[in-house]
Design a protein around this nucleic acid. Sequence first.
DNA 1: GCCAACGTTGGC
DNA 2: GCCAACGTTGGC
Length: 153
Amino acid sequence: MRYWLMKAEPDDVGIDDLAALPKQTVGWYGVRNYQARNFMRDQMQIGDLALFYHSGCAEPGVAGIVEIASGPYPDPTQFDAANVYFDAKSKREAPRWQQVDVKLVKKTNYLTLAAMRAAPELEGMLVLARGNRLSITPVEPGHWQAVMKLIGE
DNA sequence: GCCAACGTTGGC
DNA sequence: GCCAACGTTGGC
């Protein structure tokens, strides 16, 4: 079992939106980066845990814990011409983009990006790397444990 | 296969 | 709104 960090934009689906959804589960649509897609397609297992991270907002940071709740399957937004994530080059016979379902485990104390950067035990965490833009990153067990401690879990 | 141009991400 | 960093595209 692996650990992950998954970026969401709270303006789109934040932790409270997830908590309000039926089954507190959402399909992780909209990934349009091959590396991130490959993590979902090739490495994620049902039951893996992930940090639910808020990005593109005033105070970025970890907002909760989610678990991977499905195997990979085609992201429906890629076929929807009205959707911002529409990809004209993706064919139904050969979908380019995949998603997994993600289920809320719990909303946690909020761990800000600033606090993460200030924590020596999180040094080397991929999400903190300079210029990092990857929306899904693996998290080392040691970093996971350190984050759990910082948020009081 | 190279690489410049371009678009996007994401923190500030 | 700015801008650094990075991924993708497309001409050659």
